[in-house]
């Protein structure tokens, strides 16, 4: 099958170019992994097969969430610099809400993060949520399957403060909640009962003096009160570059490759979202998601089979 925008190129060839971090190739593949139509599932199967045959290993997926203005973008920019300086590669998937009226969306932009434009080991892609709840777009997991095969680290950045916005934890190897000193966020999080979900906390903008101290104390108190065990708190200042290296080192120690283990749960979710409750019952009757994936030879083939069945 040829790769659409360029008649003489096949998808495995595009996959190979993407392995070399050619940005246009990566971008064209991401578009295929975002496409909900069955034909795209066939492309995905071909691409994943080509990448795996080429020896691609799964990188780690890290969830980063927090309220608007918590400092996620500055943090991502500083971490990207640290990761690249350390010889690693990084892709960022930033999810933004779609307008319920027009369906259109304002998407985050890589320039907001200030990536150097000519660094091939960095890739930034925004996704409209397309009405999905939970802070993720319907295709976020799919795109992670691709990008984790191309980059050492994939950051999934979502916006939100409530219970429903932290579903990123379901697809990430580790999830961090970013909190700005002045937001009073920690109280909100405690009320929302999500203190136990993140693997760690990042107290951003740690250059605001007394405010940062107070926020740190409040966060520790909130963790204690909510009965959650001890969780690491990282204090960073993107402006001063403080705490960034430490956080990057912790991330580098997170073992990658957990994505495959989450495929059954994500497949079940896809079935329920796209095909409804009756289809979910049918999947269960057929032995559940894990068995279905095994029987049909992987995620994309299973999607094709289920859509055709």
């Amino acid at each position: 099958m040829t790769a659409g925008w360029h008649v003489s190129v096949t998808w495995p060839e595009v996959a190979q170019a993407a392995r070399a971090h050619q940005r246009r190739a990566v971008a064209k593949l991401v578009t295929q992994f975002e496409d909900p139509r069955p034909a795209a599932a066939a492309v995905r199967r071909e691409v994943i097969a080509a990448l795996d045959a080429d020896g691609a290993r799964l990188g780690r997926v890290i969830g980063l969430t927090g309220a608007p203005g918590a400092g996620k973008s500055s943090l991502v920019g500083a971490l990207a610099t640290a990761i690249v300086a350390d010889g690693g590669s990084l892709a960022v998937v930033a999810v933004d809400p779609s307008s319920p009226v027009s369906g259109g969306a304002f998407l985050g932009d890589r320039t907001r993060v200030r990536f150097p434009p000519d660094e091939p080991r960095l890739y930034f892609r925004s996704q409209p949520s397309r009405g999905a709840l939970g802070g993720l777009a319907p295709s976020t997991f799919q795109v992670c399957r691709l990008l984790a095969r191309l980059y050492d680290t994939v950051i999934v950045e979502t916006v939100g403060v409530g219970q429903s916005e932290i579903e990123v934890a379901a697809i990430a190897d580790a999830t961090f909640l970013v909190i700005a000193p002045h937001g009073g966020d920690e109280v909100q999080f405690m009320k929302a009962g999500i203190m136990e979900i993140p693997d760690g906390f990042v107290l951003s903008k740690d250059d605001l003096g007394a405010g940062a101290e107070r926020a740190h104390a409040q966060l520790r108190a909130a963790l204690r009160l909510s009965g959650v065990g001890p969780r690491p708190i990282f204090r960073t200042s993107a402006q001063r570059g403080a705490g960034i290296t430490e956080l990057a080192q912790v991330w580098a120690a997170i073992s990658p490759g957990g994505l495959t283990a989450r495929e059954p749960a994500q497949f079940a979710r896809w079935v329920a979202d796209e095909h409804g409750r009756a289809a979910a019952a049918r999947l269960n009757a057929a032995g559940g998601a894990a068995a279905y994936l095994a029987a049909h030879g992987g995620f994309d083939a299973a999607q094709l089979a289920f859509a055709g069945a």
């Binding site: 940005r23 246009r24 990566v26 971008a27 779609s98 259109g104 969306a105 304002f106 998407l107 985050g108 932009d109 890589r110 320039t111 907001r112 990536f115 434009p117 000519d118 890739y123 930034f124 892609r125 925004s126 409209p128």
Partner: peptide, 20 residues
């Protein structure tokens, strides 16, 4: 779906956004 890249951008930054 709109990526509003804001002001004071180098042309190659806009191109990089557009491609990615």
């Amino acid at each position: 779906d709109v990526v509003y890249a804001g002001i004071r951008l180098a042309p190659d930054e806009i191109a990089a956004s557009a491609v990615e």
